[in-house]
Measured scan of single mutants.
Amino acid sequence: MQRVNMIMAESPGLITICLLGYLLSAECTVFLDHENANKILNRPKRYNSGKLEEFVQGNLERECMEEKCSFEEAREVFENTERTTEFWKQYVDGDQCESNPCLNGGSCKDDINSYECWCPFGFEGKNCELDVTCNIKNGRCEQFCKNSADNKVVCSCTEGYRLAENQKSCEPAVPFPCGRVSVSQTSKLTRAETVFPDVDYVNSTEAETILDNITQSTQSFNDFTRVVGGEDAKPGQFPWQVVLNGKVDAFCGGSIVNEKWIVTAAHCVETGVKITVVAGEHNIEETEHTEQKRNVIRIIPHHNYNAAINKYNHDIALLELDEPLVLNSYVTPICIADKEYTNIFLKFGSGYVSGWGRVFHKGRSALVLQYLRVPLVDRATCLRSTKFTIYNNMFCAGFHEGGRDSCQGDSGGPHVTEVEGTSFLTGIISWGEECAMKGKYGIYTKVSRYVNWIKEKTKLT
């Protein structure tokens, strides 16, 4: 034993070699072989497995989906700052455009905790909710729209109204504003409101030439003092309507412009014939205590009207009353817009006519005020429907199939267009061939041609 100890002390290297040989010859039971080890760690190889990531292109799944990435790591994937920024906006807080917040056709661009709407022409605001041009839906104005110097929408209202708090709607500024039905039992019968379409306001006024200088022999019209197929109006439903009495009662109609003036057809009036105007009328054979009678003290036909040349060209006249009318729910003026808007309103496509005229061709006159909704007829169809001249200051309205029309005794009465609950004068009943005849239409004086003249002559002093 002493000898062994001496050998170990003198030859430590020998001992180490012996131990190493023993270990190498022993069977290893701690580690699995290569094949079995792979069965336990069965993990798919990654895209760049075996390579240094710093030297390969980034992978979106590896960089940002398996674990949260930084902007720089995302930049490695896209290799483009702009594309990385677009991805980053949604990656950080989701897609803010998912709810489609942009209105009126706006395009949404996502941002971090926010979004941006790219608005089409005519709109602005956070969600493109603000109209900035009158060309689109009248700028959301209830009545009139004008573009300011910086191309912003400025709404306005006709006389007797003021802008509401929203700067879009119009509200009454006087007790009985024009064009409004205020009798409670008839307010439910107000005709369907007309909503502004998209309009090209630059070209809204037709490029028409008034044929002022045409000389033409007097034409022989049949029954051209021209509501057939209409309905009984309720008291106060058309408070701007008046009836004219002269040699015979209810020979023509008219509309209240203001307390002192009536507008009617020029062919209705004769110099030297006494005319009485009755406002607030409903049943011409009954006294309903809503009527107001006034005498006409002055007749002003349009300066281009000449019955000797043509009885229905420039067929418009103004009547001055001896005493002002007292405005109330049964006696209310009709609204008159400017030339541009009167023309736009007419193009809405349908209007209402009213009167006490004959209820059928050569038949009896109506006792109760009649009204009828009539569609506008395109000019080409209008011209083809008659052998008589249709001037540019006239328009056609009615039904091709016949059966409904204005008729004798309705002449001078109103053709009105309702705009968001307020009625505007767009025409004056003038003439036609018979009444409600198939293929024939009622012919009306186009008020847009005469609004400046009306307003100039009827100013209240």
Score class of each variant (00 low, 15 high):
E82L: 04
A164P: 01
S114V: 07
I428R: 01
V183P: 11
S329G: 14
K387T: 14
F238C: 04
E53P: 11
I262S: 01
C141R: 00
G427C: 01
N151I: 07
N203K: 08
A436P: 15
I214W: 06
G179H: 01
T276E: 14
C108M: 02
N151S: 09
V419T: 05
T417F: 02
L325I: 03
P44I: 12
T215A: 08
T215G: 06
V195A: 12
I336P: 00
R384D: 12
K438C: 08
D95S: 15
D232C: 07
G94N: 09
E159F: 06
T458C: 06
A173I: 12
K68A: 13
V242F: 01
E285F: 09
H282T: 12
L460W: 11
S114L: 10
G398W: 03
R180M: 06
T276Q: 07
S448E: 09
E420N: 09
L163D: 00
I284Q: 07
A233G: 06
L367P: 15
P375F: 06
S184K: 07
V195I: 08
I344F: 15
T386L: 10
R191G: 13
G363D: 08
N306L: 05
S25E: 04
V30F: 15
C128S: 02
K51Y: 05
E35I: 07
T276M: 06
G229D: 12
A250H: 11
V153D: 04
V451E: 03
W453N: 00
Y441L: 12
G439N: 08
E231H: 11
V296I: 06
G363Q: 12
T85H: 07
K247S: 02
V368W: 04
S107W: 05
F196I: 14
P120F: 04
D322H: 03
L318H: 01
G253N: 01
C396A: 01
T16Y: 14
N138Y: 07
V92Y: 05
S25T: 15
K109S: 06
F87L: 05
V377G: 02
G349A: 07
M437D: 13
Y47T: 15
R358E: 12
K311R: 11
K339V: 07
T133K: 15
G363N: 08
K126A: 13
V4F: 15
Y441C: 03
Q216S: 10
G402T: 10
V153Y: 15
H314P: 02
C117F: 00
N313Y: 10
N222E: 08
T426H: 02
G50K: 09
Y371V: 15
G236E: 03
E420V: 11
K89G: 12
N100H: 14
F348I: 08
T84N: 10
H400F: 06
L325H: 00
E27L: 02
K234M: 07
E286L: 10
E418T: 05
A26G: 12
N127Y: 12
F221I: 10
G427L: 00
A337E: 01
S204E: 10
D95Q: 14
S25K: 05
S406W: 13
D110M: 15
K234H: 10
E286G: 09
T209W: 09
G106W: 02
S385W: 12
M8Q: 12
F71M: 14
G280D: 01
G363I: 06
E171C: 04
G21I: 14
K45I: 11
N147L: 09
Q96G: 13
K293H: 11
F251L: 09
E73W: 04
L130S: 14
I136C: 04
W431Y: 14
T225S: 10
K45T: 06
W453M: 02
E433C: 09
G94S: 11
C102A: 00
T264D: 00
G363P: 13
N42A: 11
D111F: 12
C134P: 03
G272P: 03
I17M: 13
V296W: 01
E165R: 08
S350D: 07
D223F: 10
S255Q: 02
C435S: 04
E61K: 08
S354W: 03
D405C: 07
E434I: 10
G351M: 02
T225H: 12
P44M: 09
A207G: 09
N138G: 08
F31L: 15
G272Q: 02
T389E: 12
E323M: 10
S255N: 03
L19H: 02
D95C: 04
S217P: 13
D33M: 10
K457V: 12
K45N: 11
N295S: 08
R294N: 00
K152I: 11
N42G: 05
T389L: 12
E53L: 06
K446M: 07
S423F: 15
E73L: 06
V92D: 09
E116F: 14
K109N: 08
G412T: 14
F224C: 06
N343R: 08
D198A: 12
D198S: 09
A250N: 12
G50W: 06
L367Q: 13
K89S: 09
G398K: 07
Y391G: 15
E66Y: 04
G106H: 02
T264Y: 00
K247M: 05
N38I: 10
E259C: 03
K311T: 06
R364D: 13
Q57R: 12
S217Q: 12
W88T: 15
E286S: 10
G349E: 04
P333H: 02
T209H: 12
V195F: 07
G272R: 02
L383P: 03
L321V: 09
S49A: 05
I299R: 04
G427E: 01
R364G: 11
L23H: 03
N222K: 09
K168M: 11
V419K: 05
H34T: 14
V263Q: 00
E401F: 11
K387F: 05
Q237R: 07
K152W: 06
I299K: 03
T342P: 00
S99N: 15
Y391H: 12
G125A: 02
I429A: 14
T16M: 15
L32W: 11
G160W: 02
E35V: 13
A26H: 02
N452I: 04
N306W: 03
V377A: 08
W261N: 02
A173F: 09
F71R: 14
G421T: 06
F123K: 10
E418K: 09
N42W: 07
D95V: 09
L41T: 07
K293G: 03
N147H: 11
C108G: 01
N42F: 06
L376V: 09
F399K: 04
R46Y: 13
W261E: 01
G236L: 05
L24K: 02
V77S: 13
L325Q: 00
Q96M: 14
L325C: 00
F388I: 14
G21M: 15
L346N: 04
L318G: 01
K146V: 08
L189A: 07
E35C: 04
L244F: 03
A26V: 10
E82Q: 15
A233R: 05
C157W: 01
C396T: 00
N147G: 14
V181C: 06
C268A: 00
G122E: 06
T426E: 00
